[in-house]
């Protein structure tokens, strides 16, 4: 199969891409490629230049932060259709804020973030759809982080103890 056709076919599987018009899908396909990472392989490291947004097509990617002296802390895993590296879609973030490692063999779509921003600037209809999706991702990631921050399973401090 033509690599571009294969790419489009894969992108069409992503639920939220179904909202896109064909011309928009073509535009995104034009700045995207497919990538495979083997289990244990590092997709990017904290501090790397943030050039791509990834969408997991199959497999599982883990996000870790190195916390001295506790070592690597795993705070999120992304399963199919989840987006990672979303912050590179904003004009201000240039560095990866976490490391991404494949937990199992993983198949991904990678989108050039600079070009995606340019596309969104040129076509606000597309830009709106992309940013709306990113807002959803940020909201759910934030909620998740809040719950983790609350450490809901922790034994609470008994400041009102009997």
């Amino acid at each position: 199969m033509d690599p571009l056709d294969e790419l489009k076919l894969e992108l069409q599987k992503i639920p939220w891409f179904r909202d896109l018009q064909i011309k928009h899908l073509d535009l995104i396909a034009g700045i995207s490629q497919l990538r495979d990472v083997k289990a244990g392989e590092v997709l990017f490291r904290e501090g790397d230049r943030a050039e791509y947004i990834y969408i997991v097509l199959s497999g599982r990617i883990a996000l870790d932060m190195a916390v001295p002296p506790r070592g690597k802390m795993r705070f999120h895993t992304a399963d199919p259709w989840e987006v990672i590296g979303w912050s590179s879609a904003t004009p201000v973030v240039h560095q990866r804020t976490a490391s991404a490692t494949a937990v199992v063999d993983t198949h991904l779509a990678m989108i050039d973030s600079t070009k995606l921003r340019e596309l969104c600037d040129q076509d606000h209809d597309l830009g709106y759809l992309v940013m709306r999706r990113l807002a959803n991702i940020v909201a759910s990631r934030l909620m998740s982080s809040r719950l983790q921050l609350l450490d809901m399973f922790a034994e609470p401090e008994n400041k009102n103890a009997k």
Binding site: E155, P156, E157, N158, K159, N160, A161, K162
Partner: peptide, 14 residues
């Protein structure tokens, strides 16, 4: 009574 609604998680009505 402050201890009335105390449980392992703290006080329900502090």
């Amino acid at each position: 009574n402050p201890g009335y609604s105390y449980q392992a998680g703290g006080n329900t009505r502090p």
